[in-house]
Computed example of a mutant assay.
Amino acid sequence: MIRKLTDQDHHQVIAFLSEEPSINLFIIGDLETFGYSSDYQEIWAEFDEQNTMKAVLLRFHQSFIPYAIGEFDTSGFISIMKKYNQPVSLSGKSEIVEKFEATGDLILGKKQVTFFAECLMDECLRAEDVEYKKANIEDVDKIIALRSSIEEFQIRSDARDILVQAMESNTARTYYTAENDVITSCVSTTAENSMSAMIVGVCTRKEYRRKGLATAIMQKLFKDVLDEGKTLCLFYDNPAAGRIYKRLGFKDIGMWTMYR
């Protein structure tokens, strides 16, 4: 049986998602921040005959994230997603979301597969002597300008609004270095919740690269988040970046697939 969840289901769904808190940081963070009754967010769950939760499907605006332990009702979740605009924006643990691709019943966006890594301890971090600041709302335009200058980054048209909303809801923070009031390097979290935080937006202006700025502020940010008792998570598909993250204490825990 699949049904839509409400506030009354919160403890059960969080316990279910806590089986893999890093993999589920987006779902956990969205539920903690936006709850069960907003127009742009809904969550459904599949239950077995003993009323044990088997799988969940979160909708946030036009994006979906499924999670399951074992087999689940793929066709039931597809029926829900088909009620919204296609192509579908879908992401999640690769072995789960690729079941939807295999059916051929959904029009999916462009596929991207990345490594998913987490860091639990700060034993690999060291103090770096670099002057940095924590960003506030007044810094948002400068952050977006830097990200927009990075060839590898794909900046959405609503990127500014998303960053402002995340800062205001305390689900994101950004540390940066600057020179002459120009941001030279920055690193951010997103989807922060009571258990974990995702690292995103690691970038350095071209003329300031190879000076260790991004690595230095990453270590500052990583230590602050870990000291709060949270797990750090990140995606990467660049082997060179992966080697840097692993030197800082990250370990691969799976693959993450996005269709968008």
Rank of each mutant, 00 (worst) to 15 (best):
I143Q: 08
I107M: 10
P21L: 14
I43G: 05
N170D: 06
N85S: 14
S169F: 05
T174N: 10
S185N: 09
T189M: 09
K246Q: 15
Y84I: 05
H10T: 06
I150S: 03
V13H: 03
F72W: 02
D30S: 10
S18L: 05
Q62P: 00
E95H: 04
C203Y: 00
T103E: 04
T6D: 09
E71M: 09
V130T: 15
A55C: 06
E123P: 00
S157Y: 00
V130Q: 08
M53I: 14
L57P: 14
D158P: 01
I69N: 13
E152L: 13
A68K: 05
C186P: 00
I28T: 05
R126G: 06
Y132I: 02
R243D: 07
E228S: 04
E46Q: 15
A241W: 00
A178H: 10
A15T: 12
F47W: 10
D224A: 15
F116Y: 06
Q41F: 06
A127F: 14
A159G: 02
R209V: 03
C186R: 04
K134T: 07
N51V: 07
C124Y: 11
Q154D: 09
A68S: 13
V113Y: 02
E151Q: 09
Y132G: 03
D252T: 13
E71D: 15
D105R: 08
C186N: 12
I96H: 07
R243L: 09
N180F: 03
R260Q: 06
M121Y: 11
F34P: 05
R59V: 08
P21G: 14
V13G: 04
M121R: 07
T184W: 06
E152N: 12
L57Y: 12
F60Q: 12
I107W: 04
I107C: 05
D227T: 09
T190V: 06
A102Q: 10
G109I: 09
L232M: 04
R3C: 05
S94Y: 01
I14E: 03
S149D: 08
R260L: 08
S94N: 01
C233Q: 02
K142G: 10
K230C: 01
A197I: 00
D224F: 04
L57F: 12
